[in-house]
């Protein structure tokens, strides 16, 4: 139990970082109505780009911006495969994801794993977040303001603010319409292809940014770090919806719910790891089962528990 409580700050920090990725998943899955599997690859792309640039002494913000742009390029690839080449979105994502595996390795100089040298205190100080800061703050060696929960929390708030503003603009509204009803969108003069590509770019940009943060946090990038990211993202989206769906109506709050969903997910995973003797290799199976169940619940509800009253079809003007 003590073990678990001790691990909580780390779990929350990680949850917040993955929460950014989950917000990216929310944009494609909920707003655009596309299950985008690119994220399993673009998450690592972000981490790889960041670690390599950071290792070369590039400014941290520049390195993170580069990671964001790299992720957007990945989204662009999926978007063009889908819209310009007519490949179903899910397959387009899988293709990009597969291709990214090689690209990510190439970025990392054909190594499966590239570390940030955090034994060098100068390097460590340059980082925005790190696993080590959690302990440093606890020991009083670092100001509280550098605590990863606070830093990533503020970062998340900023991202949510920007997204909230963006989806309130004409372009953002057009993007939402593209996902809500492509037919209507086209009839209102919205290029739904452009909308989808743009949405995929924004989403994967965020996913890569999240990957860049995680690679800082754990001080390395790994070619398999994005494996199952889409499932974690979906888990966060669904948990957020189940827990806060009734309360959070505002768009910004819905994004916040996703972020909190990711935190809950990581706390649960941490609890499973700390409180039982389970082999951590089973975590992915557990995640998959949890997400499958939560995705199935609304379907079962609709199928077996609907009241006999007819929905829709009424036409009282």
């Amino acid at each position: 139990m003590l073990n678990f409580i001790g691990a909580l700050p780390g779990a929350v920090s990680q949850g917040l970082i993955w929460g950014l990725m989950a917000i990216g998943v929310y944009i494609t899955y909920k707003i655009l109505d596309i299950a985008d599997l690119t994220v399993d690859g673009s998450f690592c792309t972000g981490g790889a780009v960041f670690v390599v640039l950071f290792g070369q002494g590039v400014n941290i913000w520049a390195a993170m911006l580069a990671a964001l742009l790299a992720g957007m390029l990945a989204g662009l690839a999926t978007g063009l495969l889908h819209t310009a080449c007519g490949i179903p979105a899910i397959l387009a994502g899988i293709l990009t994801q597969l291709g990214l595996w090689s690209i990510n390795l190439a970025i990392m100089g054909m190594k499966a794993n590239v570390a940030i040298n955090v034994t060098n205190p100068d390097n460590l100080d340059r980082l925005l977040v790190s696993l080590r800061f959690v302990q440093d703050v606890a020991k009083g060696n670092r100001p509280f303001i550098r605590h990863p929960i606070l830093v990533v929390g503020l970062f998340t708030a900023a991202v949510i603010a920007v997204l909230y503003a963006f989806f309130g603009t004409e372009l953002g509204a057009a993007l939402r319409a593209t996902g809500a009803n492509p037919n209507m969108a086209r009839a209102q003069g919205i290029n739904t292809d452009t909308g989808k590509v743009l949405g995929l770019m924004i989403s994967n940009g965020l996913v890569a940014l999240s990957g860049a943060l995680l690679s800082q946090y754990q001080s390395f990038a790994d070619s398999s770090m994005g494996k199952g990211a889409i499932v974690i993202g979906l888990a966060a989206v669904i948990i957020g919806q189940v827990v806060f769906g009734k309360v959070f109506r505002n768009f910004a709050l819905k994004l916040l719910a996703v972020s909190i969903g990711a935190i809950i997910y990581y706390i649960v995973i941490q609890a499973v790891v700390s409180l039982s003797n389970i082999n951590t290799n089973y975590l992915k199976l557990i995640s998959a089962v949890i997400v499958a169940v939560f995705l199935a619940i609304p379907y079962w509800k609709g199928r077996y528990f609907t009241k006999t009253s007819h929905k829709g079809g009424s036409a009282h003007a």
Partner: peptide
């Protein structure tokens, strides 16, 4: 209102101005 605002901009370039 969002649906109406989308329709009011039919045939126009949609940029980063507020949607409504």
């Amino acid at each position: 209102i969002e649906n109406l605002a989308l329709a009011a901009r039919r045939g126009q370039r949609r940029g980063l101005r507020w949607g409504i």
